[in-house]
């Protein structure tokens, strides 16, 4: 085994040399691929990415099953998440025992107060969390970006009017505002989504405005004006794409926050109405049964925790990847 001396030297520090190669290859990438490569290198961001992927797949499958197939899949192969079951109510998870009986493999996480399987209800609650989290945040990002970009770019009285309006919304406690909106327009899922979207708008409007104030002074904006580009076009092509990175980060984190808000709403009885399963709803149901079966509360709590954490980890990873100051 005659090893050439160079290889032997490199063998002294195998970790650093391979990391160096990875750096080189990442530097050659541009735009999205660069960001993705950065996230892949970041362990916690990768964990967040995996959590979100799994949760999203579950959400899509359960959305299709509940909205289009009327729980055909769940009913045929598992339990119906909404219909009352004949089974024992408030069973503990498998391997544990309480005054109602011992946990069995047929209900791994136990049952709720109506004897419905807890696992199937938590799984089918995913779609509400993701649907509201993503759609409401998307709504907030779109409206907030437009308001913030217009406000920052034009300045003057347009800025004053838009910013004062946004600050007024911001000043009202978000939960009270959403509850007020739902009380006025009805306790429907879509009203909840729009309501949460509205309370999210100010965050993005203010965030992107501060970025736009920086970007609009760049020379390429003046260059674009000098060649006769329309304001609308400058906003859409030059200002917003160059101000969007912090919005992407905040948006990812905000999905997690909005999932929490919706869980809170459902817990208070707003949002999705029973018997449709949602995490906040399950938590609310469990309140009266915490002593005989604490697991009834713990499992939906874990579902919320893990999902929100997934979005937070990915958001943090995105922030590191998109912030040029961190790419030493």
């Amino acid at each position: 085994m005659a090893t050439p001396p160079e290889t032997a030297e490199m063998g002294d520090q195998p970790v650093s040399s391979s990391a160096g190669e990875a750096d080189e290859s990442i530097r050659d990438l541009t735009g999205w691929r660069y960001t993705l490569a950065q996230i892949k290198r970041d362990r916690t961001a990768r964990l967040g990415w995996y959590i979100i992927s799994v949760v999203s797949v579950v959400a899509i499958v359960t959305y299709v099953d509940s909205q289009l197939l009327n729980y055909y899949i769940a009913d045929t192969f598992w339990y119906h998440p909404e219909r009352d079951a004949e089974g024992t109510a408030l069973l503990p998870p498998v391997g544990l025992e309480n005054s109602y009986g011992a946990g069995t493999w047929s209900h791994p996480l136990g049952t709720d107060q109506r004897g419905r399987d807890l696992l199937v209800r938590i799984v089918y609650g995913t779609r509400i969390a993701i649907q509201v989290g993503v759609v409401a945040t998307g709504l907030g990002v779109i409206v907030g970006t437009i308001i913030g970009a217009v406000s920052g770019y034009y300045g003057g009285w347009i800025d004053d009017i838009l910013q004062r309006t946004v600050e007024t919304v911001y000043a009202i406690p978000f939960l009270i505002l959403v509850i007020a909106i739902m009380s006025a327009f009805g306790r429907h899922l879509w009203i909840a989504i729009v309501g949460v979207g509205i309370v999210t708008v100010p965050i993005f409007a203010r965030l992107i405005r501060s970025e736009v104030l920086k970007v609009r002074e760049e020379e390429y904006i003046e260059a674009a004006k000098a060649i006769g580009v329309k304001d609308r076009h400058i906003l859409a092509r030059h200002i917003i794409p160059n101000s969007f990175a912090p919005v992407l980060v905040q948006g990812t984190l905000q999905i997690g926050v909005n999932i929490l808000i919706v869980a809170g709403l459902s817990f208070l009885g707003f949002g999705v109405q029973p018997p449709t399963p949602s995490w906040g709803q399950i938590l609310a149901d469990s309140r009266g049964y915490m002593l005989p079966n604490p697991w009834f509360s713990i499992f939906p709590g874990i579902a919320i925790l893990v999902t929100v954490m997934g979005f937070n980890l990915l958001g943090d990873g995105l922030r590191d990847a998109l912030d040029p100051r961190n790419n030493g």
Binding site: E219, Y220, E222, A224, A226, G228, V229, R237, P241, N242
Partner: peptide, 26 residues
């Protein structure tokens, strides 16, 4: 009219700093 007739079409401007005059994201 300045935008549609003059700027870019009739009179063009070249800026001082070529590093800053192009949009970095496209």
């Amino acid at each position: 009219e300045m935008r549609s007739k003059i700027r870019g079409r009739e009179i063009a401007l070249i800026f001082q700093d070529p590093m800053e005059s192009l949009n970095p994201v496209f």
